[in-house]
Design a protein around this nucleic acid. Sequence first.
DNA 1: GATTAGCATTCAAGAAAATAGAGTGCTAAA
DNA 2: TTTAGCACTCTATTTTCTTGAATGCTAATC
Lengths: 329, 329
Amino acid sequence: MLSNRQEELLKLIVEEYIKTVKPVSSKSLCDVLDCSSATIRNEMGILEDLGLLEKTHTSSGRVPSEKGYRYYVDNIMKPKELTGDDMLKLQTVFHNKSLVLSDAITKSMEIISELTNYTCVILGDTSNENKVSKVEAVPISDNSLIAIIVTDKGHVENKNIILEEDVTVEEIKQTVDLINKLIIGTPIDEVSAMLEYEVKPIIGKYVKQHEVLYNAFYNAFSDFAQDPVIKMSGTKNILMQPEFDDTNKIREIVSKFEDKEIVSNIKEDKNGINIYIGSESEFDDDVSIIKTHYTLNGEEGTIALIGPKRMEYDRAITLLNYIMDNLDK
Amino acid sequence: MLSNRQEELLKLIVEEYIKTVKPVSSKSLCDVLDCSSATIRNEMGILEDLGLLEKTHTSSGRVPSEKGYRYYVDNIMKPKELTGDDMLKLQTVFHNKSLVLSDAITKSMEIISELTNYTCVILGDTSNENKVSKVEAVPISDNSLIAIIVTDKGHVENKNIILEEDVTVEEIKQTVDLINKLIIGTPIDEVSAMLEYEVKPIIGKYVKQHEVLYNAFYNAFSDFAQDPVIKMSGTKNILMQPEFDDTNKIREIVSKFEDKEIVSNIKEDKNGINIYIGSESEFDDDVSIIKTHYTLNGEEGTIALIGPKRMEYDRAITLLNYIMDNLDK
DNA sequence: GATTAGCATTCAAGAAAATAGAGTGCTAAA
DNA sequence: TTTAGCACTCTATTTTCTTGAATGCTAATC
């Protein structure tokens, strides 16, 4: 258990380091804590023994450890008020009423990455709340067609399908009508089963080239659930941070950003705003990630803010909270 | 005018530098040119006076200048045969027949960036060859609908539209039917005019909330022509090149890659494969860009390969040519 | 028992000097 | 026209020194 002074000291060191990116010396805190540097050094020693502080070399000042940041975030940090300036920029998103929701998230992401100078990632999934609203097929050539699926939440997916065998326009129309009749209103995650057990048996009776067409639509729908949308904003921001002043580190991060599989792992399941510090992020030991899962009118996904370990956690959280609150409305 | 030996010398220096990224010394070429280093130094001096070679400092070996690369590309370089290995990897794209064309380009881009270790960019435009094939509108809520436009080449665009005033399902249906009747077959770049002069006058007679609906569709179509698709592959590749072993240079390039406006400038209009060396690229003085414009079954755009100035121009061109030839089929 | 002054100690970071070696340019001879 | 030979230039690396900002510890003080 930390004494009041120890907590105060940890707080000062974390906040000073976040600001300056330089190890904090005992002397520099004398004034604030109103005691001598020797006393502070003693306390620092204790915090270091507890694993909350670290040194970069034997005679350097102290730097928060991962555990130190964790303690700060869990026990010390207080929510921060939004500054008028931040507020002002955020307003521009929410006052534009003609923005469709999905655009609003994207726009928020851009603003948040700009305000914080961190990198913002959106991993969007199509929520299972989506129900099929309309299916359409437009023939393009003799052996290809475009299958279009619209959901009640306004999602549109289309797929260009090559047909292995010739199919008549009439057959396509029949199939589409049939599918529409049977699956409108079906939640998107149940469509595959629906197609297989309800549509497949019936389609054979009415449509000649039923195999080909069934397969085409089955593939179109199976794509729907998959590949989450990845959007990033401010990729460069995190690379600009002084702690990443190393070509190989930058290359490593850029490589990870480019790898969809790695980025997809940033996905968050828990509710509320969650903080992952350094190695906790499972993305890169030198970054922290603040994530939150959102469900918003048929869209669902993760919004994540990637910054250095010395992130301004309080401000970032406040900003994210503000955005989430306002998107709800 | 260069002598044979001078051309040979330039060729050797360019190719050696491309391979090693180290200034080339006179001594290292004695064997190949079968003369003394002093002779080579004399010739090098001439090439330097002509601005084809440069030194990094007074007593360093020679490095090709921008003009040197240009001379090499224009006068010396010969097309390169594809290696069996390259060929093999490329085959995988073209043997997959169920790949729709647009996917084939994307896939080619990925392979080409992987084979060359350069960065590949595709700037896709919707060609004006596209003609409207079908328009559809699906109501989502009382005050919003999804407008969908399909072209004869298989392009689909959709837009979520918020209606300022209430509109009935019946009115939407009427409008869509009307638009379909009037504009199917219209080239995409003429749709705006068509809407304004043909549809607008008529729509008023049949549809009550014609203003609102007209505006909605007008906006949906105006989006179509705009925002070209940008796809990138192997962003990290160029950052890995040894000449970019500098954090600020890397940051600069990443920033440019992130800026859609800058990337859009890479667009190519000329036919055939074009080479832009260093400052000619107008993207960054330290890179070269090989670009080609493609028109392919209703899709149109630019495919660009971004590498260091010491690119393997011959190989890159051969690869691009191979891809373009095969996409045509 | 907690605090602090004082002092030896450690280490990074930067400047300065020393060294080695890879190249060049130029001259004079072949 | 070519080349051997040599002085010269510059980079890159290593080494040494110096400075100053920290620390840890001890012993005196509050």
